[in-house]
Design a protein around this nucleic acid. Structure first.
Lengths: 224, 224
DNA sequence: TATAATAGGTAACAATTACTTAACCTCAAT
DNA sequence: ATTGAGGTTAAGTAATTGTTACCTATTATA
């Protein structure tokens, strides 16, 4: 296997060097950038498998940088992790929307960092793990495209699967109809108003009514 | 040839006796154990060529038992098969990590059981494999480019072989059309839309419809 | 070398499944 | 009571996949 490339983005040199040290010790090839613009340049050039972004940065913050990176085609498959201070709840929500794959909390502990990085990189190299998400007895497995409930497996049609996966990706968060349309159907597709309802209904039929809650006038959320 | 020893482990006496009856009829020497601890003891003493483990057992489940057995040096070459209920959480593919060689689905049909056991034992006696992979009664041999099903051998054309080998390499995982094209045909080859379908059809014709499942809008996967 | 057999691919159409819509219903807030 | 948001159902529509027959290239066989 090729040496893995990691791009590290933070405005604090100390943190940059601290993380670099710990990752290079593990044999990774580490690139660093001190701001979003440089990060994007480097990412274009080096095509890293994993990008670690500090959320809090001057000028262009991590989320914005993430959004820009996600627009670059050849980086579509890169794994992006955010560095955040503990308990930055709002940030996290925005971060998942931006397509983050994981969060790493500061202060950083070397061991945690390394094992997390390994787990994230394993995802790319096909190896089993991390693909399943379990919440309130319901498990969705992206890789196998299966939903499990109480040991039984169900094959959901594509839209239903994407919909439940979206809602579960951020349990408790209310997804507006707009958001749902944009992320499950795509921005250019135009569908009628009742389409979402019908899909929600099908999900409730299969999972039970207790998981998906309607927030009238706002949207839907997953609860457990 | 020496009489072959088979160790059977299940907590349900009925199943134990049912299988024992069918295997003894074929001339095998069958030992039974009702739990993992006894199984390990017996395995140590009798050194069976084949061990059939029920996955679901109280206290020490099949996978755990398997892990313990694999630690015993003289049992390194034993073939281990799991008994599983159909549609049971495929999580057990974790069983492969534990070093399982095959899965046998419940409910058990005598004929299927016997031919399966024969196929597994054939591996030990004489025919050295190393590159063979057996799943749900289908065995693919990368070296000889041969597919075996219930004792019969089939010569698959290259593409068909590569396709089934790919799907079986990660049972349960959905391979997108894109992935399949890239890995069986290569990234630069351009083939029409229906090409994959036709090959899938040929495989289903030869193996039976129950192995390859279509996930509409996503891809195909191997199931057993 | 001619001929046959096999493998791989394509096109046309059938079948299936998923998705969307329309029409109508319910419920709660004003 | 009226309105508006969402729920429900059945049926229509679109998209994806299955199937068959046929063509071409390659490899085996006489």
């Amino acid at each position: 296997m090729n040496t893995q490339k990691i791009l590290l983005v933070d405005d604090e040199p100390d943190i940059l060097e601290f993380i670099r040290y710990n990752l290079e010790k593990e044999g990774y090839k580490v690139f660093t950038a001190s701001n979003g613009v440089k990060a994007i340049e480097l990412a274009q050039k080096e095509n890293p498998q994993l990008i670690i972004l500090d959320v809090m940065m001057p000028d262009m913050d991590g989320i914005e940088t993430c959004n820009e990176i996600r627009k670059i085609d050849k980086l579509k498959n890169a794994v992006i992790a955010f560095l955040t201070a503990r308990n930055e709840d709002y940030t996290q929500i925005a971060g998942f929307d931006a397509g983050a794959d994981d969060y790493i909390n500061k202060p950083i502990k070397p061991k945690v960092l390394v094992s997390r990085v390994k787990a994230l990189l394993r995802r790319i190299n096909g190896e089993q793990d991390g693909t399943a998400l379990t919440l309130g007895g319901i498990e969705i497995d992206r890789e196998k495209y299966i939903v499990r409930k109480e040991g039984k497996e169900y094959n959901f049609p594509r839209k239903e699967f994407e919909l439940v996966a979206l809602l579960m990706s951020k349990p408790g968060k209310v997804f507006t109809r707009e958001e749902i349309l944009s992320r499950v159907w795509g921005d250019d597709v135009v569908v009628g108003d009742r389409t979402i309802d019908v899909h929600i209904r099908k999900l409730r039929e299969k999972l039970g009514d207790e998981y998906i809650r309607t927030i009238k006038g706002v949207g839907y959320k997953f609860e457990f």
